[in-house]
Design a protein around this nucleic acid. Structure first.
Lengths: 251, 251
DNA sequence: CGGGTTGTTGAGGTTAATCAAACATTGTGG
DNA sequence: CCACAATGTTTGATTAACCTCAACAACCCG
């Protein structure tokens, strides 16, 4: 099903998906995506200095590279600063599935909180940059600041709701409805970050989308084509424009 | 779809599996399921008194009754003390789906943390009893006690992982595999509570199971029958005995 | 015990998967 | 910068899995 890291011939010719370590740029990250992570609502102004005190560095991840992998020790939470990543899990038998998509401004890495080990792999869909938030420091801060505690809880709660919603998508929607729901979800999240609701560059492949939506890449492709014919969207490869928002919602 | 709190009459004739069936009893709950919620690992002995100080009352919920509903204000977390419940969500168009099953000893109510409002409805599958843990008190306590904070985080993290796993089940397993995965999951959780791995009374209907597993009740029924013919299980209605554990795992 | 709910099983239909092939895009090295 | 190779996308034909509809049996529950 999923491409099993095919070892090509002796010449280890690495294609774009270089699963190797990064140059690991570590830059100070003062008000980057931490604003998204912590600011939105509820953090008193008094608390801001404390927040900034969190050792918060940035790391860049190249397209195809893993930010963390299944089994890696869990030390940090992340906030996507730019770009986007997918999270991937594997069944015992090796079959893989995309379990999530993270856009700029969204948190990442909450898996692993209960086991101290990451339970999925996070792979960059394009050259991306993330903020690193040491979990122990964050925890400590949550003990001092109620607003911060609320914020972290809210973050986890939001993730819970997102996953429940995806369970609903996978459990009771038709292929058409799944694709529509996915496009609308991405559209909305894009809007929340201040970008266009109507047009975005979705860096997942058709295979990734299919994996996330519980269907094959062919069905995804066919569905998008049909949507286009019906005047619901305008898709040029990965660039997607939503033409008839309501039409998608009322499928 | 959802049984609307059927009010029965005065004669409270309890069947055999109606343990503590007090009509909305509010009894002190010292070491009940809070042990499961808080004790398992990591809580220092010094912290126990504090834990007990949490105002923790019990509430009984009759079969078919809702412990809380979508939209109810979120004030409490719960721990199932006896019995079992399902959580249910609805799409915009009214279609409902079972999103979770909670057995005795398991936490309930984490949905709603981010919005202060419950996002699903929790319905008792049999006459059940739950511990009530006021969220604000718990939060306050987490600020004082690191071990308690860890415990709550772990709880939320475990829920996240459960839901991700269910996404994987729904997204990439065949009907047979889904049913098998579900039976093994319930078996394992039953074992964790000290009951039998091999035999349990699953109080969901075939329709509930189908809804949870993204398939029709007929397919669930057929699958169970086939499993039985193959000697994998022995199912007498809701009483299920797992005969060939490994056979189920390696479907 | 009786009526409604729940569970089982069969026949036939529909959706989406699979298999296959051509085409498009991307990234790389010459 | 071009050409090639690899990856990704689209579309078609066929098949398989699962759903729908329907009838009946079993089981609670009151």
């Amino acid at each position: 099903m999923l491409t099993p890291t095919v070892v090509t011939h002796t010449t280890v010719r690495r294609t774009n998906r270089a699963p190797v370590a990064s140059p690991r740029s570590a830059a100070r990250c003062s008000s980057c995506a931490m604003r998204h992570l912590c600011m939105p609502q509820g953090l008193a102004h008094d608390d801001l200095p404390k927040l900034e005190a969190l050792i918060c560095t940035a790391r860049s991840v190249r397209r195809g590279e893993a930010l963390y992998r299944v089994g890696d020790p869990f030390d940090n939470l992340y906030a996507v600063r730019s770009g986007s990543l997918k999270t991937v899990m594997a069944h015992r038998d090796g079959r893989e599935q995309v379990t999530g998509l993270r856009l700029a401004g969204e948190p990442l890495g909450l898996d692993g909180i209960s086991t101290n080990v990451h339970t999925c792999t996070a792979v960059a869909l394009e050259d991306s940059s993330v903020c690193i938030v040491p979990y122990s420091a964050l925890k400590h801060m949550c003990r001092e600041t109620g607003a911060m505690q609320d914020r972290l809880h809210r973050l986890m709660g939001e993730q819970l709701i997102r996953e429940t919603s995806q369970m609903m998508v996978l459990g009771s929607l038709s292929a058409d409805e799944r694709v529509a729901a996915f496009l609308l979800d991405v559209s909305e999240r894009n809007g929340q970050r201040g970008y266009s609701h109507a047009e975005f560059n979705l860096r997942m492949t058709r295979e990734d989308m299919g994996s996330y939506l519980g269907m094959t890449l062919e069905t995804v492709s066919r569905t998008l084509s049909r949507f286009q014919k019906r005047g619901l969207i305008d898709a040029q490869g990965k660039l997607i424009r939503i033409v008839d928002h309501d039409g998608l919602r009322h499928l």
